[in-house]
Amino acid sequence: MYYWFMLALAVVAEVVSTVGMKYAATSSPIFGYLVMALMISFSFYAFSRAVVHIPLAVSYAIWEGLGLFLIGIAGVVLFGEYLSLGEMFAIALMLVGLLLVTFDKGKKADADEAFPVVQANKHKPAQVARMQVKPAHRSTLGEVAL
């Protein structure tokens, strides 16, 4: 649960950082850049904690997909931006894909079947393969010996 919480914090921090970026570009540069730098740093930290347990493809899809959705809402609510019907449809399709990636419980390989354990015979000593190494060819300046 901790890792999912860290992923949620990473998403929220990314959204706040992007809103700070918009403020930095429009009305309050110092405050906007400060918020942006602090929050994107925290977002990367929280994301790095989340990927310890959550697969990278799933966590990145959630981080960026949910972040894009929330940033779109923030743009409309906070800055009066307009999303066309096509843009809203594209975001909705992305969210459906995000749900499919996140909640897919595909067939998982059993650990014992995927990586069979080879046990050594106790009665026979293991033979070690020995590699023969040829002496290196000395080259003159400008030549490469392979």
Rank of each mutant, 00 (worst) to 15 (best):
Y45S: 13
A46V: 15
S48L: 10
S48P: 01
R49A: 01
R49N: 04
A50L: 09
V51H: 06
V51C: 04
V51Y: 04
V51T: 06
V52K: 14
V52P: 03
H53W: 02
P55L: 03
P55E: 10
L56T: 00
L56Q: 13
A57R: 08
A57F: 02
V58Y: 00
V58Q: 14
V58M: 14
S59A: 15
S59W: 02
S59T: 03
S59L: 06
Y60H: 03
A61D: 04
I62F: 05
I62A: 09
I62R: 00
I62Q: 08
W63P: 04
W63R: 05
G65H: 00
L66C: 02
L66N: 00
L68F: 02
F69Q: 04
L70V: 05
L70E: 14
L70S: 07
I71C: 15
I71L: 15
G72S: 15
G72F: 05
A74G: 05
G75S: 12
G75T: 07
V77D: 08
L78D: 13
F79D: 10
F79L: 09
F79T: 09
E81V: 02
Y82E: 13
L83A: 08
L83H: 07
L85R: 08
E87F: 01
E87R: 03
M88Y: 00
F89L: 13
I91K: 03
I91D: 01
A92N: 00
L93C: 10
L93P: 04
M94N: 09
L95Y: 04
L95N: 07
L95W: 06
L95P: 03
V96H: 01
V96S: 02
G97V: 13
L98K: 05
L98N: 07
L98P: 06
L99Q: 02
L99H: 03
L99I: 10
L100A: 14
V101W: 05
V101I: 12
V101E: 02
T102H: 11
F103W: 06
D104K: 06
K105A: 11
G106Q: 09
G106M: 03
K108E: 12
K108T: 06
A109E: 08
A109M: 15
D110L: 06
A111F: 12
A111I: 15
D112E: 15
D112V: 15
D112M: 13
E113Q: 11
E113P: 03
A114W: 04
A114V: 03
A114N: 12
F115W: 06
P116K: 06
V117D: 05
V118Y: 02
Q119I: 03
A120W: 01
A120L: 14
N121R: 08
K122C: 05
H123P: 04
H123E: 14
A126W: 00
A126Q: 03
A126I: 07
A129H: 10
A129V: 13
R130Y: 11
M131E: 07
Q132K: 09
V133R: 10
K134W: 11
K134A: 14
K134D: 12
P135A: 15
A136D: 02
A136M: 05
H137N: 06
H137D: 03
H137K: 11
S139H: 08
S139A: 14
S139F: 07
L141I: 11
G142M: 00
E143L: 12
E143V: 13
E143S: 14
E143H: 10
V144I: 14
V144G: 08
